[in-house]
């Protein structure tokens, strides 16, 4: 399992050709209390950089972009009743959706954990 990060503060954990996507702990901290998460439809084809999900907080509604292309296979069912999971467990139980990757080569443009940490410190 390898975890990658984007400059838009999404993370993706890849196992085989399946990726699990969420927003980073840094991102949830910036957004404040999350009140609702709009999730992508299962079976929807998505292209790297598409806005596929929306996270509503008391401050703003923020788009979530998919780090890679593929087909959505699952949206986190726990978030419908407990969107606050994105606050408490942003990088674990607060994942947003899973997808089947269509081009693993796209991962090479993403950051690893150390690079993301440096990126956030530079903000």
């Amino acid at each position: 399992m390898t975890r990658y990060f984007t400059q838009d503060h999404e993370w993706i954990e890849v196992e085989g050709d399946t990726g699990t996507v969420g927003i980073t702990d840094y991102a949830q901290g910036q957004l404040g209390d999350i009140t609702f998460v709009e999730l992508p439809a299962e079976g929807a084809p998505v292209a790297k950089g598409d806005s596929v999900s929306v996270v509503d907080s008391v401050k703003a509604a923020s788009d979530v972009y998919t780090p890679v292309s593929g087909v959505v296979i699952e949206a986190n069912p726990a978030l419908a009743d407990a969107p606050e999971l994105v606050n408490t467990d942003a990088e674990t139980g607060g994942w947003l959706f899973r997808l089947t990757l269509s081009d693993a080569g796209e991962l090479s443009s993403l950051m690893d954990e150390a690079a993301y940490k440096a990126f956030v410190e530079g903000l």
Binding site: S51, D56, S57, A60, A61, D63
Partner: peptide, 11 residues
């Protein structure tokens, strides 16, 4: 209000 146009613009 985050659903609404004056906050979320074209989305």
């Amino acid at each position: 209000s985050t659903r609404e146009q004056h906050i979320r613009r074209e989305k």
